Amino acid sequence: MYEVYYGGISKVHPTGFMMSRPNGAGHYVILLIRSGGTYNIAGCEKIVPPGSAVILDPKVPYSYSNPKGQYIDDWLHFTFEGENLISKKLLPLNTFFQISDIEDPATLLGQVLFEMSYTKNADIQRDNIDCLMNVLMNHLYSAYTMQDDPRYKNPFYPQFQALRLSMQGGNFDDISMARKAESMSISVSYFQHLYKDFFGISYQKDVIDMRIEYAKRMVKSTDNKIELIAKLCGYSNEIHFYRQFKEITGMTPKQYKELNS
């Protein structure tokens, strides 16, 4: 169970700001570092780049600032009882690590603060905060364990993840590789290379597989006409849809529905 005390989102500290806690904060502290800065933790000084995170021990002395200008971060003070990734020593304390997309944990942190301020039912508030904190910790643990993965360090990885997640949800309205590459300001060949490198499959084959997987769910669970299902899966030609469906599943949509009804 987590007890959350206070926090902030995208807090901008002016040039010359320094946070110094020689006796620690008295709580665990999550810092999502947006601007970068110079940190001193228990006498060890370190220059930390933007897009980093750290969880500080309640008793560790620390200070930080950004000598180059404004210091910007998201932060949360909390304690906990029971077992979690920190108590299991899977998520280390006082250790900086990189986060591919800082907005993911920042969104969760912000939702925790929202629950603190605006959920009036105490039981619901406690349950929601516990759930959100567990998800936040899992996100931080994932970032910590993946920080040395070359994909995770690539600035295009979050965009490709978002694209693939969108298609997995059945969004096939505009999946032209040329337009996707243009939206990222990269060449089509580099787009193809990155996609295969990130996911181990070519963009073209992945699109076909996801279209047919989505079509299988629609055929199995709805009474929509095949013409509509083909359109929802991004096919402008119903005959082309039939051919690809049978090529991948080994049966026609009608046969698939009868087999799975």
Score class of each variant (00 low, 15 high):
Y6T: 02
Y6F: 11
G8M: 02
G8C: 00
P14E: 01
P22Y: 12
A25P: 02
A25Q: 13
Y28E: 00
V29H: 08
G37K: 00
Y39P: 06
Y39N: 07
Y39C: 05
I41T: 06
E45W: 03
K46G: 08
I47S: 06
S52R: 02
V54K: 09
P61W: 10
Y64P: 03
K68I: 03
K68Y: 10
I72M: 00
D73M: 01
D73L: 03
D74R: 02
T79D: 15
F80V: 01
F80A: 10
G82R: 01
I86S: 15
I86M: 14
I86V: 10
L91M: 02
F96A: 01
Q98C: 09
I99A: 02
I99H: 01
G110H: 00
Q111P: 03
V112L: 15
A122S: 05
D123A: 15
I129S: 01
I129M: 07
D130R: 04
L136F: 01
L136P: 04
H139Q: 13
Y144N: 05
M146T: 14
M146R: 14
Q147P: 04
D148A: 09
P150Y: 08
R151C: 13
P158C: 04
Q161P: 06
Q168D: 07
R179L: 15
K180N: 13
A181W: 11
A181D: 10
E182T: 07
M184F: 10
S185C: 14
S189L: 13
Q192L: 11
H193K: 09
L194H: 12
D197A: 13
F199M: 02
R211V: 01
E213P: 04
Y214R: 04
M218L: 13
M218F: 09
T222R: 04
D223C: 15
D223I: 13
E227F: 07
A230C: 05
Y242G: 05
G250Q: 07
Q255P: 12
N260V: 13
